[in-house]
């Protein structure tokens, strides 16, 4: 292969202002984290709520949650993003539409779309994890709680959820990492997150291989750190003698 490697490219000027290519990667990483974290907060709150709903005796509530999961899990993420970005705004009331399409900076409207899209998409997956966690608990646990006079919300709050969330930390770690990885779809609607900055660097500098090596490395280090973080969380909340307590 006749390719001229140049690892110094990241410190070269981009030709735009005083920026060097490394600045682009840092900005991109910032957007990636901003998208993923906010989407994760939405997914965690909404997903937990839906997961609880799926296990409730009320048919209407559990049916609604099942429908939600079916809808958001069976349509590709990229299709969902295009729907949120290109189609949904057209259905907004006139004033909101103008605001979204004209008043907002393009990067802000893209950001809102991708955060909503990724948040709702991941909520469906979080819902299934939470449901599985609750259903994995013995029926006797809720029976014991009811027998002591707990109400349904108390049974969830004090008995089921604290146990279910501990059980599902490993699969939830995967979902957490997925949000960061999936946030790369934002590059397709023009949000300058990590992948978009990488493509731009590749085009401007012609150092395609270095740019993508850098992106790969950043994604890898970011996700490894998150994995370590979640491992730490799992250890922090582990209970002696309970499954997943590392034999403590």
């Amino acid at each position: 292969m006749n390719y001229h490697w140049d690892w110094g490219v990241f410190f070269k000027s981009t030709g735009i202002g005083h920026e060097i290519y490394l600045d682009w990667f840092i900005t991109g990483l910032g957007w990636t984290i901003a998208v993923a974290l906010v989407a994760w907060v939405i997914a965690l709150i909404l997903g937990s709520l839906l997961g609880v709903m799926r296990t409730l005796p009320n048919k209407a509530l559990s049916g609604f949650a099942s429908g939600y999961v079916a809808l958001f899990r069976n349509v590709p993420l990229l299709v969902q993003l295009f729907l949120w970005y290109f189609l949904v705004p057209d259905f907004l009331p006139e004033s909101l539409q103008t605001w979204f399409k004209q008043d907002l900076k393009p990067s802000t409207s893209a950001y809102i779309s991708v955060v909503v899209c990724l948040g709702l998409f991941t909520a469906a997956r979080v819902c299934e994890q939470v449901r599985t966690g609750i259903e994995a608990l013995p029926k006797g646990q809720s029976n014991a709680a009811y027998a002591m006079g707990f109400t349904l919300p108390q049974v969830y709050r004090h008995v089921l959820l604290p146990q279910a969330f501990r059980i599902i930390i490993p699969p939830m770690t995967s979902e957490f990492l997925n949000v960061f990885k999936n946030s790369s779809v934002a590059s397709l609607i023009g949000l300058m997150e990590l992948l978009a900055q990488t493509k731009q660097t590749a085009e401007f500098s012609a150092n395609l291989f270095e740019a993508f090596t850098m992106a790969t490395l950043i994604y890898f280090v970011l996700n490894m750190s998150l994995m370590k973080l979640m491992g730490w969380v799992e250890n922090r909340v582990s209970v002696p003698g309970l499954i997943g307590s590392n034999g403590k």
Binding site: P138, G140, A144, H158, Q163, V239, L242
Partner: peptide, 14 residues
């Protein structure tokens, strides 16, 4: 007001 004891104890493990 009614206490109940179960076959599998059902203490809350957490």
């Amino acid at each position: 007001r009614v206490g109940m004891v179960f076959q599998h104890f059902e203490l809350f493990p957490h």
